[in-house]
Design a binder for these strands. Structure first.
Length: 614
RNA sequence: GCCCAUGUAGCUCAGUCGGUAGAGCGCGUCCUUGGUAAGGACGAGGUCGGCGGUUCAAAUCCGCUCGUGGGCUCCA
């Protein structure tokens, strides 16, 4: 049994109080489980009554009463037989008996009692309910019993609890603050992207400002690709079903693909025959009719490029890169802003290598991912090394090859000099992988950069190169994407910066604020000088007071403001107000300003101040 | 896909007991020409997500549907 921290004890106890209150109000309720979590606690209930917000309030009221009664938490150990009878006495047989069965033979079975309520529970708990100084029920959500979608769906009540009211208030305020950083909110405010009902769920429209950010990021990657010996390619958005039959993506992953595109004549023919839907999908699977698939992955296309020529061992590694857009039919409930979508562009590349090059190449890929993260100041990520489960037989390729690959990944990740976790059984069926995982503002984790070894596709496509022994050899493939997908990465990036992008990424890098219309010609002169250096700049020509223009530029999160008044125009200077680097504030010549900003852009400096935006 | 919630102007939201719509921001015009986070006046803008039902009457009640949010399941 794991010792619980004091905070976990409070939360765990709050979960029991929640169950106590629910049973008082709705005695017919069947309880499942109620553990503490990172940010609070939950309890799963099976109840006829839908827990609406009003009901939730009543439950919260009842919980307050329970706490006020200052019930004592008492531990009680029981034999298996006693445990069964306690559960039966409580009338909680539906789920609790199953939970009891989960406890291995020989382990202590314990219950915790508070007031009239008793629950199968390993502990631990606070001593009295009054120790729960501050709690709040947050929301209700559906959840499957044992996390299995074929099981009954229960109602999960989420809440949080703290040792003091102040901490609770702070926590709730932080949640409010986090909501303001939500990429969906900022994306709308700053005109970065739009997801349109009529275009389709999970299909991102990049608006002009968002497109600039994406172009800058793609440019950054392209620069690195050129340095590191990659070749960029372009491939189409659809390919024949046969291609994906060979790769195994069709029909194996059919559920998460847009349905195939079938030629009109073929459809007419089938209609004449009175072909049913299931017959059609049968024929598609068997390959009796062909069609096209919106590509769910870029690899098969890159593989066909590799295979279009003969390769010598001297040519390897061959590194094919593409910003390749793929389409996957994600479940509707899973879609989320830009972080989970149905069409997305991977900053993809496939490396065709000799086995002896594996470690070096993985290392190269990892250092690229690391460079991306450090350039953007994203240091709050975790690295997950996903290995195979030695017990399972779902994996392709020889065990020796896996061992080598896993060893190579381990060695490569060690050279990064960062912490990482190994997770058994998390590998893809075709090879082990390393993922960079980042949290969003609400604490949800998203996989961004990824490096994966693949033994499967070279086999399926019968890839080969000619070795020094003049014989054919099978290359190994590496899939890698430093950003993962442009959509998800931008979503996370928006939240990371809270919209205050470093100047090199900012859609509008400089805004000129003339005090009045007479100064417009001078403002235009300054604008030309900025634009001559490829600096994205604009002039606020609105008839408004300076304060209002500054406010607008601040809320638009423009890195640099150039204020122009009579004084500046007479002296041939400008007055800089900079949110990305307040050290630069003050009067400068326009030439010096252009130089400073151009330097900031080319060095990809991170913002120096993080003023919270209003 | 499933559970719950939700959908009113470009955005954020109000709209009581069912009596056919309101604010702020933004936008437009005019006035104002200013010194580091909001000057002022006037004006335009809505088939209340869509379809159907109940009703003399529906933004409001009911059903279906589409979208969104929070979870669950999933993520090659």
């Amino acid at each position: 049994m794991k010792e619980m921290s004091p905070l976990e004890e409070i939360r765990h106890s709050a979960a029991h109080v929640l169950a106590t209150a629910v049973l008082r109000l709705y005695p017919d309720t069947q309880l499942d489980i109620g553990p503490p979590t990172d940010a609070g606690f939950y309890y799963d209930f099976d109840s006829q009554i839908p827990f609406s917000p009003e009901v939730l309030q009543q439950i919260e009221e009842e919980m307050r009463k329970v706490i006020k009664e200052n019930q004592r938490f008492e531990r009680q150990e029981a034999s298996r037989e006693e445990a069964v009878s306690i559960i039966k006495e409580m009338g909680q047989t539906t789920y609790k008996l199953g939970r009891l069965d989960d406890i291995p033979e020989g382990e202590t079975i314990s219950f915790y009692r508070n007031g009239e309520f008793i629950d199968l529970c390993a502990g631990s708990h606070v001593t009295y309910t009054k120790k729960i100084k501050a709690f709040k029920l947050l929301h209700v959500a559906g959840s499957y019993h044992r996390g299995d979608s074929s099981q009954k769906q229960l109602q999960r009540i989420y809440g949080t609890a703290f040792a003091s009211k102040e901490e609770l208030t702070q926590h709730l305020e932080r949640l409010e603050e986090a909501k303001k950083r939500d990429h969906r909110v900022i994306g709308k405010d700053l005109g970065l992207f739009h997801i349109d009902e009529q275009v389709g769920q999970g299909l991102v429209l990049w608006k002009p400002n968002g497109a600039i950010i994406r172009q800058e990021l793609e440019g950054f990657i392209t620069e690195q690709l050129n340095k590191q010996g990659y070749s960029q390619v372009y491939t189409p958005h659809i390919g024949k079903l046969d291609l994906y039959r060979t790769s195994g993506h069709f029909p194996y992953y059919q559920d998460s693909q847009y349905p195939p595109i079938i030629h009109r004549e073929c459809l007419d023919e089938l209609a004449k025959e009175g072909c049913t839907c299931s017959e059609l999908s049968n024929k598609l699977e068997k390959g009796e009719i062909d069609g096209y698939l919106l590509k769910p992955m870029n690899c098969p296309m890159h593989i066909r490029i590799f295979k279009s020529e003969q390769h010598s061992y001297r040519d390897l590694p061959i590194r094919l890169a593409e910003f390749g857009t793929v389409y996957r039919w994600e479940q509707s409930g899973e879609l989320n802003g830009m972080t989970r979508v149905r069409g997305f562009t991977q900053d993809d590349a496939h490396l065709f290598i000799r086995e002896d090059q594996l470690q070096e190449e993985v290392q190269g890929c990892l250092s690229l991912v690391k460079l991306v993260f450090s350039t953007l100041g994203m240091d709050d990520y975790r690295i997950r090394v996903s290995l195979r489960d030695p017990e399972s037989d779902k994996y392709v390729g020889a065990v020796e090859a896996w061992d080598k690959a896993e060893a190579a990944l381990r060695e490569a990740v060690k050279t990064l000099g960062v912490n990482y976790e190994e997770e058994l059984g998390e590998a893809a069926f075709y090879g082990p992988k390393i993922d960079f995982v980042v949290k969003d503002v609400i604490g949800r984790e998203w996989q961004l950069g990824t490096v994966q070894v693949d033994y499967n596709l070279p086999e399926r496509f019968d890839l080969s190169y000619v070795g020094s022994d003049n014989k054919d050899h099978r290359p190994v493939m590496i899939h890698r994407a430093p950003f993962g997908s442009m959509e998800r990465f931008c979503g996370v990036l928006i939240e990371h910066f809270g919209g205050n992008f470093p100047t090199w990424l900012a859609p509008e890098q400089v805004r000129i604020l003339p005090m009045n219309d007479e100064l417009l010609p001078y403002a235009e002169t300054c604008l030309h000088q900025l634009k001559a250096k490829n600096i994205r700049a604009g002039i606020d020509k609105q008839s408004a007071k300076l304060g209002a223009k500054i406010r607008r530029a601040e809320t638009d999160k423009i890195p640099h403001m150039i204020v122009i008044g009579k004084r500046e125009a007479e002296e041939g200077k400008i007055s800089l107000r900079s949110r990305s680097n307040p050290e630069l504030d003050g009067p400068h010549s326009i030439e010096a300003t252009v130089g400073l900003i151009a330097e900031e852009i080319s060095s990809k400096s991170l913002p120096k101040s993080r003023k919270p935006s209003s």
